[in-house]
Design a protein around this nucleic acid. Structure first.
Lengths: 240, 240
DNA sequence: CAGTATCCGATGCGATACTG
DNA sequence: CAGTATCGCATCGGATACTG
């Protein structure tokens, strides 16, 4: 007798749940929807998932017709892209996120802090329009964390001509550029801002957040720092 | 080290997936949304789920603030009702169902036939308005099935005054009333009709479906038999 | 970098039986 | 009817190491 097989129900909810509702899968799909295409980029979005399992899930999604794999630009680099069926999952993942944001205790969310995840998410949703067009380097500090996770650098490359999309990089070791802005807070505060539970202004006021550096960058932080795609009444997870 | 705990991510998708994406849970929620409130009614919607697990899931959902349990009408009968947070899951479950209907191979759906589930679902979605206001008894026959699952009776109680909602019952043993309509087909055909993959008229034409009894009931079958809630958006948008 | 191979423990969950 | 108790196994998946 098969244990733990499918649901053996013709109901479409069952068919969908069978592929989608296994461990890590919704988060992986979220990461794909958000625009990551390469193995190690995906890993950054689901840091505690083992590579073996990630690989397995990707194969499952491929087989389910949700993901397509192909060689990215020749050099043997694999890329994973959502198929139409996969893209069509966006509404469901958004639904999950919105539901979570609405109904799960804020306190509970803020029990699961993770700087790498936060920074990776922030990097993806940066709004570079308020930024000067030269290269910007913004350093984040979380003094309460162990040394290896205290410092993060967000690099926004110079804008080329009228290309609107600027390259951004996230580093956890000093890239060596002069820093334009320092942002310091505890991880919980920064995460709460990101989630839309509070604001930059608010936390500056109570000194939970300290910013030093170029006034222009400082003033516009609430704008260039995006918000989580699920922060109150916000739109879909932005892709790239 | 904890194995298989939560995701430890602050992302709301993770928070939601943690409660919702465990085995059987989406189907259980579907059943609750569909209106079942009592333990054994819920069981009929998820027949292959063990009572122990059902009980466990209900407790989990209760703890997650999705379900509320209380005494139904005094007699110690427990009822399970969705809270506001639970009702708010409707969009997600519908999303899953619509996605499944659109993207999972029809053939695959029709591999998982289950007469009790089909009949239970049909009973719930009957449209009684085309039916005469006296009691109606409709018998379904699936000749290819083992004896115990061949025969099903749908009882639609007489309508009282202008009460629009009529009591309906599903029996798998002869209730003894005179039968107004016999419907005979293989289970696959009936399921396909229910899912919106084909129509009553179509299957009558090819003799996959045989109906005998009162002409009025026979003619209106496509109407009084509802359709699966997911039948609307059917058909994968072919990769045209 | 992009994964695969192997190992193995915990546990999810299926089956069955039992209680008020 | 409405569940709870118990058992046991398979499998899920975490950790680690290894390969092209």
């Amino acid at each position: 007798m098969e244990t733990r097989g499918g649901y053996a129900q013709f109901c479409p909810v069952a068919m969908a749940a069978e592929v989608l509702c296994t461990r890590w899968t919704p988060l992986l799909v979220r990461e794909l929807i958000a625009g990551s295409t390469r193995f190690n980029d995906l890993r950054r979005g689901v840091p505690r998932m083992s590579p073996a399992l990630l690989s397995k899930r990707l194969r499952e999604l491929e087989q389910a017709g949700i993901v397509e794999r192909f060689d990215g630009s020749g050099s043997g680099v694999q890329e994973y892209r959502l198929t139409s069926a996969g893209l069509d999952l966006r509404g469901i993942v958004e639904g999950l996120g919105n539901w979570g944001q609405r109904w799960v205790e804020t306190q509970l969310s803020l029990k699961n802090l993770d700087p790498s995840l936060l920074m990776w998410d922030m990097r993806r949703n940066l709004d570079t329009t308020p930024l000067p067009s030269r290269r910007c380097t913004i350093q984040f500090l979380y003094p309460e964390l162990p040394a290896a996770r205290q410092n993060w650098w967000l690099l926004i490359e110079p804008s080329h001509g009228d290309e609107p999309m600027r390259e951004t990089d996230l580093c956890s070791s000093d890239p060596g550029f002069e820093v334009d802005l320092y942002v310091e807070s505890d991880l919980r505060t920064m995460t709460a801002i990101w989630m839309g539970f509070t604001t930059v202004a608010n936390e500056l006021r109570t000194d939970q957040l300290r910013i030093t550096g170029q006034p222009r960058l400082r003033e516009s932080m609430q704008r260039w720092l995006g918000l989580s795609p699920f922060a109150k009444g916000k739109g879909p997870p932005r892709s790239s």
